[in-house]
Design a protein around this nucleic acid. Structure first.
Length: 327
DNA sequence: AAATCGGGGCA
DNA sequence: TGCCCAGATTT
């Protein structure tokens, strides 16, 4: 706690206890490093400054502000949760852990973080930082990849919980992020060095123990970039796979477009568990009759460069659009 | 209990 | 190239 008092990171959500802002920041920074999400957080708060603004916004606009952040179900859930707060809690953010937990997209960690930071709740917000710091300090080889890890390290955390749990939770985050890092931790500057069992036995790199292994999968996507006079066709994805509800080019077209294909661009894109190979056929429709037939299907959305700025595209498609239409 | 969901930084 | 990050939800 003394270390945190002197070394707390200066972050935009550190000067507030507004549960709305803390909530948004917790969701934005799930599985996301601070530098990566900072602009998204600031832009999001500027456009949606409170629960009501968010609840009454269009889902697609919420997704637009999430563009490029990844894990898009977070944006969909954050929007639903805002409506939950309006309907079930009269627009007032719930203050009890169990009530916060009922909100879409808020799990045990986030509920604990909000309850402790905003409402003086006495619940440790156990995340990856907790796993790492506690497993090292106690040289505890409990496997953090199992589903029992959360309960185990929560109970461990309760043993060392001070009065101000909100600051304690944030202190653990900063310590885990700045000092007790996954690789090359800065033990020389660590306030817990004398108490750290892993350090004193020179076994820092043995903790935390994580057994789960990652397997990669290959996935091919074939798109048609169908355009005419600066306009092009897009559609919206479902919410059951990657890139939930983001916009993309048509996958298949009923009309034979092969005569119009000018070339095919291949993009390789890495996801956490997938290697994507994306083929984009450049289809310039130079026949107005064919173009009108495509439009008449009423199956695709027609947009252009300006319109595409108002839609959320997956990262590789966003890059493709920018490169293709830059002139 | 295990699988799934993005994107970026880093060694 | 593989691992990790202010995890939650679905299967």
């Amino acid at each position: 706690m003394n270390w945190y008092e002197k070394n707390a990171r200066d972050l935009p959500f550190r000067q507030t206890k507004d549960p709305y802002k803390i909530w948004i920041c917790e969701i934005v920074f799930q599985q996301t490093r601070i530098n990566q999400g900072l602009n998204h957080y600031n832009n999001f708060i500027k456009r949606f400054p409170d629960v009501k603004t968010l609840a009454t916004a269009e889902e697609n606009e919420v997704l637009l502000y999430w563009k490029g952040l990844g894990y898009y179900s977070r944006a969909i859930n954050i929007h639903k949760a805002a409506q939950q707060i309006m309907n079930d809690y009269k627009g007032v953010f719930p203050s009890h852990y169990e009530d916060i937990l009922t909100l879409k997209g808020i799990g045990k960690y986030t509920a604990a973080a909000i309850a402790s930071i905003c409402f003086n709740g006495k619940i440790p917000a156990v995340d990856g930082n907790f796993y790492r710091v506690l497993s090292r300090v106690f040289a505890d080889d409990f496997d953090i990849s199992g589903s029992k890890a959360f309960t185990y390290f929560s109970e461990l955390a309760h043993l060392i919980l001070p009065d101000n749990v909100g600051d304690f939770n944030q202190a653990m985050m900063d310590l885990g992020s700045e000092i007790c890092k996954p690789k090359n931790p800065v033990c020389i500057e660590c306030p817990l060095q004398e108490d750290c069992l892993a350090f004193s036995t020179n076994k820092i790199s043995d903790f935390p123990v994580k057994t789960k292994k990652v397997k990669m999968e290959n996935l091919d996507l074939k798109y048609y970039f169908v355009h005419r006079k600066g306009q092009f066709l897009i559609q919206q994805r479902k919410d059951d796979f990657i890139w939930k509800k983001l916009f993309e080019f048509p996958i298949s077209i009923s009309i034979d477009l092969e005569p119009f294909v000018k070339g095919v661009k291949v993009i390789n894109h890495k996801l956490t568990h997938k290697n994507l190979q994306i083929e984009i056929a450049d289809v310039e429709v130079n026949s107005e009759i064919v173009w009108n037939n495509l439009i008449r299907e009423n199956k695709y959305i027609i947009t252009d460069r300006e319109g595409s700025h108002e839609k959320s595209f997956p990262k590789p498609l966003e890059s493709y659009i920018q490169n293709t239409l830059k002139d």
